[in-house]
């Protein structure tokens, strides 16, 4: 499985993603944002970081990068696209996912482990998990507060497109467990077709026991599994 890790000026989780992909026996390559064409890739990963210094709005300028036209075409053709943190912000700005990520309601940059509740175990990103499973995954963002209009939120919920929610250690979705004020404690969503996932937490930073958690591994294993059985 060949995966493209798109690197923007200011990306800082590109190497973590590259390493995560290698760890699940995928073949990653870096693709610079000014390059064109994603032929031959089976999946596209958009890393976290601060593309263009978060100027204007997080992800707003990166989404105008030449490669993004190819990412949109890749997603439209049903190819799997995963955006993490700044990658999620870019996917929203690009219109591949609905809504927007605004300033955390805590007014702070939140950098710590959170608990995610798996809401769907039947997406191509989550088959290695079980519905209701709790994952310990780090977050590191100042703008992760998911906002969307009421109608779209209703659609996301009724269509089961919320994949991860911030929860407490008992799995309860509470305000206290919400690190940034996201509507419905939303930590990750998919597009209508289910081939594009955006999430604020960093599964690629939860791949080593030594670093505190291996709960992120399942996400990358799910992708490899889905693609090798496609």
């Amino acid at each position: 499985m060949k995966v493209a890790v798109i690197t923007f000026p200011g990306s800082n989780c590109d190497y973590d993603l590259y390493k995560a992909a290698q760890q699940v026996q995928a073949e990653p390559s870096f693709v610079w944002h000014r390059e064109r064409g994603l032929e031959g890739f089976d999946a596209v990963l958009l890393p976290g970081g601060f593309s263009y210094g978060d100027y204007l709005r997080a992800g707003a300028i990166a989404r105008m990068s030449p490669i993004m036209e190819d990412v949109v075409a890749f997603a439209d053709a049903g190819g799997p696209v995963l955006g993490i943190c700044n990658g999620f912000q870019i996917l929203c700005e690009a219109g591949l996912l609905p809504g927007a990520l605004v300033r955390n309601d805590t007014l702070r940059f939140e950098s710590r482990d959170v608990i995610l509740r798996v809401e769907r175990d039947d997406t191509l990103f989550t088959t290695a998990y079980e519905k209701g499973q709790l994952l310990r995954i780090p977050i590191a963002h100042g703008e992760g507060n998911y906002e969307v209009d009421e109608d779209t939120l209703e659609r996301l919920e009724s269509e089961g497109r919320v994949v991860f929610r911030y929860a407490d250690r008992n799995g309860a979705v509470t305000d206290e467990a919400n690190p940034n004020g996201s509507l419905g404690n939303i930590a990750g969503i998919t597009n209508e077709r289910g081939n594009v996932l955006g999430m604020m937490p960093h599964p690629e930073r939860a791949m080593e026991k030594l670093l505190g958690s291996t709960d992120g591994t399942g996400l990358f294993e799910s992708m490899v599994h889905a693609l090798s059985h496609a």
């Binding site: 204007l56 709005r57 707003a60 105008m64 609905p98 906002e147 969307v148 209009d149």
Partner: peptide, 8 residues
């Protein structure tokens, strides 16, 4: 196109 995000 760029300067504002209609969602927010």
């Amino acid at each position: 196109k760029l300067l504002s995000n209609p969602v927010t």
